Structure formats: structure tokens, C-alpha cells
Simulated scan of single mutants.
Amino acid sequence: MSDESLADRIERWMVGQMPIIQMHGGTSVVREANEETGEVVVELGGTCSGCGISNVTADNIRRDLIMDFEEVTDVHVKVPASGDQGASTVEGGRGGDLRYETESANHF
């Protein structure tokens, strides 16, 4: 096992496995990675807000993290409610109010 934290390993994985997020103007950050409970919270932002396939991206992240990290048992993906940008928005200019995704394709 590496001395690197679970959050750092997942951040590195996100960059390597999900480059399409950045290629399309989106952002991602690991907000929580609890090594004891296996719960991971990932936040998507930028152009992921309002994107028609962001539900597919969220499903892929959820599935792949559980498959690739044996200690990960539960993954939540958060996405801004709107594409607003600017200093008054969520950290990093992600914009909008954060909401947990649901299983519905209309969750954004």
C-alpha cells in the first residue's frame, strides 16, 4: 500500500481515467475519500453543469472507482445546479448550488 492518501490516489486516477472531463471544459475534484468507510464524494463542475451526458459521466465514475479501488464501497457525484461562473460561486468557479445526483437521467 502506498503512503499516498486515498484522496490523492483518486485525484490521480481521475486525471488519467477521465481526461474527457477537462477536454470538454469540465472540472473535477475529490471532496471526500474516507478510507475507513469507503465513501467517496467527487464534485464535477465547469461545463459538466447542464451537460446532456453528465449523468453517464457520473455513472462511469461511480462504477469505475468501485471497481478500481477495493477500499471504495460508495461513491457520490455532485454537480452544480447551474453553469453560473464567477467569484461568488462555489470554489474554483464551478458555479451553482451543489446537489447530489440521483439515479434519474433528469437529475441535473
Rank of each mutant, 00 (worst) to 15 (best):
H24Q: 15
G45I: 03
Q85K: 11
T57L: 15
S2P: 08
W13E: 01
T47G: 02
M1R: 10
N60S: 13
C51A: 15
E36V: 13
N60E: 13
L44V: 04
G26A: 07
D97N: 12
Q22V: 04
G45M: 03
H76F: 11
D8C: 00
L6I: 05
G83E: 08
I53H: 13
S88D: 14
G46E: 01
Q85S: 14
V75C: 11
G26L: 03
V77A: 10
R94E: 02
T102Y: 10
H107Q: 13
A81E: 09
N34E: 12
V29M: 05
S88G: 05
N60V: 14
N55K: 07
S54T: 13
L44A: 14
V77C: 10
E70K: 04
G83V: 04
R63V: 02
V79M: 05
A33S: 11
V40I: 15
A105Q: 08
E91Q: 05
G45P: 03
E35T: 14
E39H: 14
N60L: 12
E43Y: 04
G52P: 14
I21M: 11
V15H: 00
I20P: 01
Q22D: 09
G93W: 09
C48M: 14
S88E: 10
V72C: 02
E91W: 08
H24R: 14
D59Y: 12
S28C: 14
G45C: 02
G26H: 07
D3R: 06
E36P: 04
A58N: 12
F69R: 00
S28F: 13
V29Q: 11
S82Y: 07
E70M: 03
V77I: 12
T89V: 08
